[in-house]
Simulated assay, not measured.
Amino acid sequence: MKILGIESSSIAASCAIVEDNTLLGEFTLNHKLTHSEKLMPLIENLMSSLDINISDIDLIAIDEGPGSYTGLRIGAAIAKGLAFKDNIPLVNIASTEALANNIKTVDIPIAVLIDARGDRVFHGIYVKKGDEMEQLEEIDAGTIQEFLATANEKYREMIFTGDGAMKHESLITEIFGNKAFVADEYDSIIKAWSLCVLGYRKFLKGLTINSKDFSPNYLRPSQAERNLKKD
């Protein structure tokens, strides 16, 4: 089974193709070009390099968010278009789960923090149990101060990952002290291969969806919608 993973929820754009749990190839760009300019060419270049056509793909794993409104919208449009054309099933993966999957440590809570501008973050908490991942807290949005205050009361130690963790590392250290470990930049970027791995697990559980039924999980209105409400 060949799985195409598509990631566009943050500044990084990534795509990967995995076959039978073997990574065939992955391209990741962490650069300030718009996803509308770089994501589809990235996918086309990857498939060309591997001599693979879209008709060879059996499953598409797409990041559903939360994250960048524009990035998620572009990624969704590309994934839905590719899936619809060749009737390929989709699996949707939360960006927080994909980031947690970067961390290999087991039995220690993993706090995923995604920058939502200012002092706000999208957040989720997971823990790895062997090869499985358990979600400890629902994905939500709030201020970094509120999240850290609550988490510090509930957990004795914690691993932090995501661009929100890197942005607020000094505050995390101030509140958690030596109870916290903040992942490096490499493990704080979502990789498309992670979407493929998690997507395959969902596929085995029968959790695929039709392309027309997929929509991103924005968790909050777009900036344009917020500005409209102010008017």
Rank of each mutant, 00 (worst) to 15 (best):
Met1Cys: 05
Lys2Arg: 15
Ala12Ser: 15
Ser14Asp: 09
Ser14Phe: 10
Cys15Met: 06
Ile17Trp: 03
Glu19Trp: 04
Thr22Leu: 14
Leu23Trp: 10
Gly25Glu: 11
Glu26Ala: 04
His31Pro: 00
His31Trp: 12
Thr34Pro: 01
Ser36Ile: 14
Glu37Asp: 12
Ser48Met: 10
Leu50Asp: 02
Asp51Thr: 12
Ile52Ala: 01
Leu59His: 03
Ile60Asp: 11
Ile60Arg: 05
Ala61Tyr: 07
Ala61Gly: 07
Pro66Ile: 06
Pro66Ala: 02
Ser68Cys: 12
Thr70Val: 12
Gly71Thr: 03
Ile74Phe: 10
Ala79Pro: 04
Lys80Trp: 13
Leu90Arg: 09
Val91His: 12
Ile93Lys: 08
Ile93Arg: 07
Ala94Ile: 00
Leu99Pro: 08
Leu99Asp: 12
Leu99Ile: 08
Ile103Glu: 04
Lys104His: 13
Val106Asn: 15
Val121Gly: 06
Val121Gln: 11
Tyr126Gly: 01
Val127Met: 15
Val127Phe: 04
Gly130Glu: 08
Gln135Ile: 05
Gln135Asp: 02
Glu138Tyr: 09
Ile144Gly: 10
Phe147Thr: 10
Glu153His: 11
Tyr155Thr: 08
Phe160Met: 06
Thr161Gly: 12
Thr161Ile: 06
Lys167Leu: 13
Ile175Leu: 14
Phe176Pro: 01
Phe176Leu: 14
Glu185Thr: 07
Ile189Arg: 02
Ile189Gln: 02
Cys196Met: 04
Leu198Ser: 07
Gly199Ile: 01
Phe203Arg: 06
Lys205Trp: 02
Asn210Cys: 02
Asn210His: 12
Ser215Arg: 11
Asn217Asp: 15
Pro221Arg: 04
